[in-house]
């Protein structure tokens, strides 16, 4: 279970003019196992910021993020020590960012194997699983040993999604997962998300793509003026 309780995020800028920007104000939401929850709203409304607060890339200013781990212990991700968070990130979380940023000069299949290797898989098994998923989302075999920087935008995005979910994480954070995909690839990606949902993952995603969202989401929150509003 993931419960975001009264979360606010403020940026204090010290460079140039001193400035305070509030991007999220008293946000509440919850995600249950086996549920896909969608965040919708215009660009700049704070969808990505909320995902980043949960993943720890942004520091939460006020509020709590309660997360129950695989052993049943509850953590407040807004006030957690870094080593526990590091453990959760490798073992239980998957984060698909909007932009794919990987270490250069490593073949796609090796990049994708890494999260599994970090979890203790053998490199053979990891590579096998990576190849399975690569073919599932329709990336031609000739590209598997190429560097991701040589990939097209849509191909990179599919790599990014595989990278985030290859470990079948318990908590999946998706930032615009279908933004630049053609209809066939989009269908493949949605199938992967449904697979995660069926195995009981908690999935929270920011979507622009209402159609895709409607296919998979159980409930959705509309991000209105830095707040969330539950929509049917």
């Amino acid at each position: 279970m993931l419960i975001v309780n009264n979360l606010s995020k403020t940026f204090n800028m010290h460079v140039g003019a001193e400035k305070t920007i509030t991007c999220l104000d008293s946000v509440n939401l919850s995600v249950e196992p086996g549920q896909v929850v969608a965040l919708i709203g215009p660009s700049g409304s704070g969808k990505s910021s909320l995902l980043k607060c949960i993943y720890g890339t942004y520091l939460t200013t006020v509020g709590n993020i309660y997360y129950t781990d695989a052993n049943g212990s509850e953590h407040d991700l807004a006030n957690i020590d870094l080593q526990t968070m590091r453990h959760l990130r490798t073992r239980e979380f998957g984060y698909v960012s909007q932009f794919f940023h990987v270490i250069p000069r490593i073949a796609a299949v090796d990049v994708l194997s890494q999260p599994l290797i970090n979890r203790g898989w053998s490199s053979n098994d990891s590579a096998k699983r990576a190849k399975e998923l690569l073919s599932k989302v329709g990336i031609p075999e000739s590209l598997w040993n190429m560097y991701p920087s040589t990939f097209s935008g849509g191909e990179k995005q599919r790599l990014n999604i595989i990278y985030g979910i290859i470990t079948m994480p318990r908590l999946v954070l998706l930032d615009e997962p279908t933004a630049s995909l053609d209809p066939v690839s989009k269908r493949n990606v949605l199938d992967l998300i449904i697979e995660l949902k069926e195995q009981g993952s908690m999935i929270l995603g920011a979507f622009h793509d209402y159609e895709a969202m409607r296919v998979i989401a159980d409930k959705s929150y509309h991000v209105v003026t830095k707040n969330l509003e539950l929509v049917a």
Partner: peptide, 30 residues
């Protein structure tokens, strides 16, 4: 993880992605 040093002291400490995307101290922001 990353620590940020200024004038012999640690002014900020956190995950590398947090330091780069949500830096808190003015020096890290600069």
């Amino acid at each position: 993880r990353t620590v940020v040093m200024l004038d012999g002291q640690i002014v900020e400490h956190g995950f590398t992605d947090q330091i780069l995307e949500d830096p808190q101290h003015w020096f890290t922001q600069t």
